[in-house]
Amino acid sequence: MLTMIGKRLMFAIPSLIGVVIVTFLLTRALPGDPAAYFAGPAATKEAVEQIRKKLGLDKPLIEQFFRYTNDLAHGDFGNSLTTGQPVATEIRNRLPASAELTLLGLIVSIVIAIPLGVLAATRPGSWIDHLCRITTTAGVSLPVFFTGLMLVYLFYFQLGWSPAPLGRLDVFYSAPPTVTGFYLIDTLIARDFEAFRSALSQLILPATTLAIFSLAPIARMTRASMLAVLASEFVRTARASGLSPTTVIVTYAFRNAMLPVITTLSMVFSFLLGANVLVEKVFAWPGIGSYAVEALISSDFAPVQGFVLTMAVMYVLLNLVIDILYGVIDPRVRLEG
């Protein structure tokens, strides 16, 4: 097991080096001049040059690159110009916000999608199969910002059930002391139940928005892979041996159908984490997606590089976890490993 993890991590190194080089070059290739942008609306040419010098952008590209990699080696991701903060701190502060939202959205989505997919596969053509088809098609067809805005309009503006879409906590609560960065957990550790309630109620709408969107791939994949497994010979044998339907479906079929679902889950998770920008925008969520996009709009190099690098590391780790999970679910993978 440990050798496998070690091997996998070794393989990740070249891809990380590649990511560092490519993001560096790509951000430099962006149109727009950060010096001119940050010199402000009333800047003279000299003022722009002064800023360029301060940012080190007057140096040759290769020197900029070595300086950047040197800083990286020391754990310094550079400073964001738009927010004025060190990128490493910002990502550390913002990643939990995105992760908490994404995880909750994903859990809600799994809780609905997997049973829905399984039920649809066991009763093809029934009403539940049609329900599965309709919800997944609708979920994937509605753009997240639309779903988000609709939910805000309905549950906040019209009905007044949901709290104001103002980020992770009500304005008048203060954030719990950081332990995990997940407010739901941190408020419980701090025994601040009012804040927990507030954090939870702030999370419901954005998490639902994400769940509606991610329902489709999970439910469809569960259904398809369950159908394939249910049609296979060992299930027929199990049925013929007179095992109860629950045993057949849960123990035999479901476990075998899990592999592609797990792969889909990992993809959906990483996709949601990076791409829930729109949800973050709609709900004023202080996550990393909106951070990266804002940086991109203002050609703010450091956060973009930091974001891409963090995402690359996350992907590597996620893939590792998935590989380990494969081994747990399917002994054959373990043997080959």
């Binding site: 805000v152 304005v171 709609v282 004023a284």
Partner: peptide, 14 residues
């Protein structure tokens, strides 16, 4: 307390 709310529609709703 000055909060950043990127969505104009939400600012109006608030």
């Amino acid at each position: 307390i000055w909060r950043m709310v990127p969505q104009a529609g939400n600012r109006r709703a608030l």
